[in-house]
Amino acid sequence: MTIYSDDLVRIANHVVGSGTAVFGAYDTITGSGMASRGIPQVCCGVLLLYTAGIFQDHLHRRDTRVVAYLSGNPDAPLSKISAATGLSQERVASSLQRLHADGLVVSEEGAVPLPPRYRLT
Rank of each mutant, 00 (worst) to 15 (best):
M1P: 14
M1I: 15
T2D: 12
T2E: 15
I3G: 14
Y4W: 08
S5H: 13
S5M: 04
D7P: 07
L8M: 11
V9N: 14
V9H: 12
I11L: 13
I11D: 15
H14T: 13
H14R: 14
V15W: 15
A21G: 13
G24A: 07
D27C: 09
T28G: 12
I29K: 07
I29C: 08
I29S: 15
S32R: 15
G33Y: 01
M34E: 15
M34Y: 06
A35H: 04
A35Y: 07
S36M: 10
R37A: 10
R37N: 12
I39P: 07
I39V: 12
I39Y: 13
I39Q: 01
V42M: 06
C44F: 01
G45K: 11
G45M: 07
L47F: 10
L47R: 06
Y50W: 05
T51M: 14
A52Y: 15
G53L: 11
I54V: 10
F55R: 03
Q56D: 09
Q56V: 00
H58C: 05
L59G: 00
H60N: 09
H60V: 03
R61G: 04
R65K: 12
V66Y: 04
V66M: 08
V67Y: 02
A68R: 12
A68M: 08
A68F: 10
Y69S: 05
L70P: 04
S71Y: 01
G72H: 13
G72I: 01
N73K: 04
P74C: 00
A76R: 13
P77N: 05
P77R: 04
L78A: 04
S79V: 01
S79I: 00
K80C: 11
I81A: 06
I81C: 12
S82L: 00
A83G: 09
A83R: 08
A84M: 02
T85L: 12
L87T: 08
E90P: 09
A93K: 10
S94F: 14
S94I: 06
S94P: 11
L96S: 12
L99E: 11
H100C: 12
A101E: 06
D102K: 08
L104I: 04
L104N: 07
V105E: 10
V106F: 08
V106I: 13
E109S: 12
E109C: 08
G110A: 13
P113M: 06
P115N: 08
P116E: 07
R117N: 13
R117S: 10
Y118G: 01
R119D: 05
R119L: 09
L120I: 06
